[in-house]
Amino acid sequence: MIYRSKKKGGFDAMIRKARTAYKYCIGIDTGTHTGVAVWNREERRFEILAEMKIHKAMFIVSEYAKVAGDKVLVRVEDARKRNKYGDRSEFKLQGAGSVKRDSTIWEDYLNDLKIDYNMVAPQNNHTKLDSETFAKLTGYSGRTNEHNRDAGMLVFGL
């Protein structure tokens, strides 16, 4: 069964399943610079924490789905659910339309692949951590940027 945030109880059911059934949880921070994080639940570590173009991120998701089948959960930061843009919001709003379109593309893509997924409102993810805080929290010592840290926080600890 595919658990999506649109279904009643979908989020709770997805979290329960994430803690028992999934081997890989993949976080996607949408945008021109797509953040991708692959969390290996069994080994309790990131296999991938990177920034890349959307087509490369989609390739990674499809490859994990081929290898692990229904043992993959994808969590996408859904810009369509953002309602605050903060300081300099007039500049951020200029790029908001394309990021919202990316969210729609991801949702359509994951539906087509029949991969379990959850579209996460930005305010429901612990975002905008600096690298030092991220390293302390996750134990990850490699180089990071804002995009892959945001993707990582979508899946860390599931």
Rank of each mutant, 00 (worst) to 15 (best):
I2R: 14
Y3E: 14
Y3K: 11
R4K: 15
K6W: 05
K7N: 13
K7Q: 14
K7R: 09
K8N: 11
G9W: 12
G10N: 03
G10F: 05
F11S: 11
F11E: 14
D12N: 10
D12A: 14
D12G: 13
A13K: 15
M14V: 06
M14F: 10
M14C: 12
R16Y: 09
R16Q: 14
K17E: 08
A18W: 06
R19G: 12
Y22C: 10
K23D: 09
K23S: 04
K23I: 04
C25R: 10
C25W: 00
I26F: 00
I26H: 05
T30K: 03
G31A: 07
T32K: 12
T32D: 08
T32H: 06
H33T: 06
T34I: 07
V36P: 03
V36T: 01
V38K: 08
N40L: 03
R41C: 12
R41S: 14
E43R: 15
E43K: 15
R44I: 05
R44W: 02
F46C: 06
I48F: 05
L49Y: 11
L49P: 09
L49V: 08
A50K: 13
E51Q: 11
E51M: 00
M52D: 12
K53Q: 12
K56V: 08
K56T: 10
V61S: 08
S62Y: 00
E63A: 10
E63F: 00
K66A: 13
V67H: 08
V67T: 14
A68G: 04
G69D: 11
G69Q: 06
D70A: 03
V72G: 06
V72C: 09
V72S: 00
L73W: 02
V74H: 04
R75K: 15
A79R: 14
R80D: 13
K81H: 08
K81E: 11
Y85G: 02
D87A: 13
D87I: 08
R88V: 01
S89I: 08
F91Q: 15
F91C: 10
F91Y: 14
G95D: 13
G95K: 12
A96Q: 11
V99F: 04
K100I: 02
R101D: 10
D102M: 04
T104Q: 06
T104Y: 07
E107P: 03
D108P: 01
Y109T: 03
L110A: 10
L110E: 10
L110G: 12
L110R: 10
N111T: 11
D112T: 09
K114A: 14
D116Y: 08
D116C: 14
Y117E: 06
Y117K: 11
N118I: 04
M119R: 10
V120N: 07
V120L: 06
A121L: 07
Q123V: 07
N125T: 07
N125I: 09
N125A: 15
H126Q: 08
T127H: 05
T127F: 00
L129R: 07
L129D: 01
D130A: 02
D130T: 03
S131T: 12
T133H: 04
T133P: 01
T138V: 09
Y140V: 07
G142F: 13
G142A: 14
R143P: 01
R143E: 12
T144Q: 04
T144Y: 05
T144W: 01
N145E: 14
N145L: 08
E146D: 12
N148T: 11
N148C: 15
R149W: 03
R149P: 01
D150N: 15
A151N: 04
G152R: 00
G152F: 04
L154K: 04
L154Q: 07
F156N: 02
G157S: 02
G157C: 06
L158E: 05
